[in-house]
């Protein structure tokens, strides 16, 4: 009995080491935060359009599966993500709404003119409030909204081609089933 007591520190450490190993080997990114809004209705927004015309609103998205992408011309990782978005828009015909997060309209416009526009419409979130409503804490962030207007998935950081193949496209496919 007394001898078991001396085993206690070792046992505690074995537990700790196992847990470190799990934390280390899982490919999870410690910086990634799951959205608090998963399966909740997407926040309402009504933003001026970057490309002119009617405002970009949440009401206008009802009844379809959309991908909402927060981006900014000042954001370097967004440039990394841009070709992936272009492919999604052109080949997969995904409905994408861009939200220019705390960006100068001219800069955002120039960026899209220069490198191509993957978005159906682009809203201007000048104050960053819509970003906060979505729980954005950095750009780029990407949200998938289903037909009923609920947020189903959030991607933090630039979308990688792998994430698109493995997660985004299958999810969109599933959500598009009637």
């Amino acid at each position: 009995m007394r001898k078991l007591l001396y085993l206690l520190p070792l046992a505690a450490f074995v537990g700790l080491a196992g847990y470190f190993a799990v934390a280390l080997l899982s490919d999870r990114d410690p910086h990634e935060l799951p959205s608090a809004l998963i399966d909740k209705p997407a926040p309402a927004f009504d933003l001026p359009s970057l490309l002119g015309g009617a405002n970009v609103t949440s009401a206008g998205l009802q009844g379809q599966v959309v991908v909402v992408n927060f981006f900014a011309s000042w954001c370097v990782p967004c440039r990394l993500e841009h070709p992936v978005l272009m492919r999604l828009a052109n080949q997969e015909k995904v409905a994408m709404i861009g939200i220019a997060y705390k960006d100068k309209p001219e800069a955002a416009k120039k960026q899209l003119d220069d490198s191509g526009n993957p978005y159906r419409s682009v809203g201007l979130d000048l104050s960053g409030r819509t970003g906060i409503d979505f729980g954005v804490y950095g750009v780029p962030e990407t949200y998938v909204i289903d037909k009923t207007g609920r947020i189903r998935r959030k991607f933090v950081g630039p979308l990688s081609p792998e994430a698109v193949e493995r997660e985004l496209l299958p999810l969109l496919h599933r959500l598009s089933q009637p």
């Binding site: 935060l33 608090a36 809004l37 729980g135």
Partner: peptide, 8 residues
């Protein structure tokens, strides 16, 4: 804020 960002 908790509604938007969670308990984090």
């Amino acid at each position: 804020l908790v509604d938007r960002y969670g308990d984090f």
